[in-house]
């Protein structure tokens, strides 16, 4: 559509995400993926070291248990938890679950997602702590 009048187009400031709590929390959610990506890279590094043999893996573990990496893992864990909670928290709004003519209430879908998450986490935790 053509326009025949002058307008002023405001520009969004680079610090827009600091102007509201919700925008800031959104940016933190986005930032969480950087930490998760770094964690995955370190995990792959461990797998490669494991493939190299016992000594290489032991050296890798020593390297990754230095204070700097421990702090990184703690921060990455907090970010991963935050990302997971916010992701599962919107499940009911995003995924419509139908059972025949009945539509499952969104809150129940969200609750189900959290129950599933805790159940799977508990199973994985049990396997790592008591089986392997």
């Amino acid at each position: 559509m053509s326009q025949s009048y002058e307008t002023y187009k405001p520009k969004l400031s680079p610090t827009w995400w600091l102007k509201s709590r919700n925008y800031f929390l959104f940016m933190m959610r986005e930032l969480s993926s950087v930490f998760i990506a770094a964690f995955v890279i370190l995990f792959l590094y461990q797998l490669f070291a494991l493939a190299e043999g016992k000594e290489a893996y032991a050296a890798c573990r020593d390297e990754l248990t230095t204070p700097g990496f421990v702090v990184f893992y703690a921060v990455a864990f907090v970010f991963a938890l935050y990302h997971t909670i916010t992701w599962l928290g919107v499940m009911g709004r995003v995924q419509v679950v139908r059972m025949g003519a009945f539509t499952v209430p969104p809150k129940l879908v969200t609750a189900g997602a959290f129950v599933g998450f805790f159940f799977v986490s508990a199973v994985v935790g049990y396997i790592f702590l008591y089986v392997l």
């Binding site: 509201s20 919700n22 925008y23 959104f26 986005e30 919107v90 709004r93 995003v94 995924q95 419509v96």
Partner: peptide
């Protein structure tokens, strides 16, 4: 859409456009 969700927060009619967009993605 990166699902900031603020569109749904400010909607005076509770339309929830953010949910509509994510459901369309699915």
């Amino acid at each position: 859409c990166t699902f900031i969700g603020e569109c749904s927060v400010v909607c005076p009619k509770d339309v929830d456009p953010a949910a509509a967009i994510q459901r369309t993605k699915v």
